[in-house]
Amino acid sequence: MKILPSLFISMATVGMTAATAFADTCPADYPGGNINFLVGFGAGGGTDTVARRVASDIEAATGWTIVVDNRPGASGGVMARGLLDSEADGLTVGVVSNTTVAINPHTNADIGYTHEDFAYLGTGMVLNYGLVALADAPYGNLEEFVDFAREQGRATISVGASSHTIAVTALAEHFDVDLVAVPGQGSAAALQEALGGHVDATIQGAAHVPQIEAGAMVQLATLTANRASYAPDTMTAMESGVDLSIEGHIIFIMNGDTPADVQSCLADAIEAVTSSESYIEFLAGQSAVPGNMGPEGTAAWVADASAFYGDRLAQ
């Protein structure tokens, strides 16, 4: 099993690599028209919200016109495949999640692309996945949860995405206990089932934070490489000895044939937004951070994540 590289790319070095590695400078005549942000998910979701916020911040900073449109379908796959047919003029940007580029090509025979077909401009938000349960459950951490599952014979965990199912399988394998992933229609539905006590725990990316702050839920384990700011006492899965770290990113991509200097225009603009105070504050309202890995960092992270999921899914 592989550890995702997020551990090795700390937030501080990311900004530097983004700034120094991108020697290409943006051509003076860019953009020369409207820029299109195509969101691979429906209106109102987390990816959509981030895309629209970043677009409006870039507009304010540069005076460019950015049209944001939703092209949902197959976890961003429909949009991503369409992106490869679009002109490589740097005016069409896809806004996707790690599922689109790192998982879809492994699970989906008709997808028609791999993560290598795209140019990566950066990332806009990190989702800190955590394993959470009701506060009044008879377990308060991962160890107790595993003991509970062993006593009961099994435990159920509601999940909202395929990467979460992979995490459940990894936990079950490590502790040699029967953990059942209960697939829901998105993470809100998964959260609802956990709150109603219909499942024993759930894996969540963001919506559980207000529940934890309200004292309704506890984080049993943090599934990212580092501990979560809202649950500093909860150990990560890796600290508990599980070789598992998943995290989610909202990723900005382009047709891979786009010239490097044109790519740098938006990569720099995105970098400027994600390091701005107002944007960081905006995400802080959702207990999240931008965690922009920059063009090269993102490409490297996606390559590693793709290898990780490909490996897990092949089993």
């Binding site: 629209r52 207000p210 529940q211 504050e281 309202g285 959702q286 207990s287």
Partner: peptide, 8 residues
């Protein structure tokens, strides 16, 4: 967008 995370 207006900085409020709906929750309990």
């Amino acid at each position: 967008i207006h900085g409020i995370q709906p929750g309990p």
